[in-house]
Amino acid sequence: MQKTILIVILLVLFCSCKQKNQEIMEPKKTIIRKQPKTISFHFEKSKEWLAKNTDSTKIRIALAINRTDKNNITKMDSILIPSDLTGDLAFYLPFPLEVPYLKSITKIIYFSYPTQTFAAYENGELIYTGPTNMGRKKDPTPTGLFYTNWKAEKTTSTFNDEWDLYWNFNIANKLGIGWHQYQLPGYPASHSCLRLQEKDAKYLYNWADQWILKNDENILVKGTPVIVFGAYPFGESKPWLQLVQSPKALNISADEIEQATKSYLNGILSEQKKRENRPSKE
């Protein structure tokens, strides 16, 4: 009798633990995106197109494709517009929706210099993407691996103290480089930083992790990895203008992401492990 009771108790405990584990390890939500029927592009007169298109979703897509913002798009004569605007933004920009090679990386951000776009991935799945305007020819954005450091909702530019930078997240502390909201004229125009639309800058500001300092001189845990890659063809036409003739001209493959990441992978995973194993009290 006692043996039977003991078995019942063990079964109850096992089922209870199993249920708790299932509650803790909830399945990851799959991102459902609406795909347009076709992907093709053509030119429109900027002011004429804006006058007859007031839908915020369509305007967001147009801004992203032209690597610009609401203020600067009106200054453009012609703009690039998809023939089918019914899809989600990710389908009109070059980053792949999935990169199996990144499955082991919890969070990572990429900035593509030639396409002037960025993408954030969680375990290999694209979760956010948008346009950027990076460093001009005179002040190029350095490429390679960086990690997010400190952040500030509002700070002042080190280049010009009259420039206010919102949702600033530093990635190269000694160089003073980071992403932040600032005007996007539709081409690389910054003094090395990574300019973003305000909505995008705020999203990455809240999503990425800051570094954790041991003291004023030493880093205990680095932030979210950021890889800046590729080269912009300064002096030539904007690369995205090719999309009219070849809608897939700028597509970035999963293999390209792998190649841009491979030499950094061990270091990224090592830093990730440090963050995961960090005592909760710190």
Rank of each mutant, 00 (worst) to 15 (best):
K3Y: 14
I5H: 15
V8C: 12
L10K: 04
L10E: 12
V12S: 05
V12L: 15
V12D: 06
C15R: 13
C17N: 13
K18N: 15
N21M: 14
M25G: 06
M25A: 09
E26I: 07
E26P: 01
E26H: 11
E26F: 06
K29C: 02
T30Y: 02
I31W: 09
S40G: 05
F41M: 03
H42N: 09
E44Q: 13
K45H: 13
K47S: 13
E48A: 14
K52H: 14
K52E: 15
T54Q: 12
D55G: 06
R60E: 15
I61Q: 07
A62W: 09
A64G: 01
N66K: 06
K70V: 12
T74A: 07
S78H: 12
I81P: 14
S83C: 05
D84Q: 08
L85Q: 12
L85P: 13
G87K: 03
L93P: 04
V99D: 02
V99H: 08
P100H: 02
P100D: 09
Y101Q: 07
T106G: 11
I109L: 02
F111L: 00
F118W: 01
A119P: 11
A120S: 03
E122T: 07
E125A: 15
Y128N: 05
G130K: 05
G130C: 13
G135L: 02
R136A: 13
D139E: 14
P142E: 12
T143E: 06
T148V: 02
A152F: 08
S157L: 12
F159A: 05
N160D: 15
W163C: 06
D164F: 00
D164I: 08
L165G: 04
L165M: 11
A172M: 01
N173C: 07
L175Y: 02
G176H: 01
H180P: 06
P185S: 00
Y187T: 09
Y187R: 01
A189N: 10
E198G: 07
K199H: 12
D209F: 06
K214F: 12
D216G: 14
E217S: 13
N218S: 15
I219E: 10
V221T: 02
V226P: 04
F229T: 09
A231T: 12
A231L: 14
A231S: 04
G235E: 04
G235T: 05
E236S: 10
E236P: 02
W240R: 03
L243V: 02
L250N: 12
E258M: 08
Q259H: 13
A260F: 11
S280N: 12
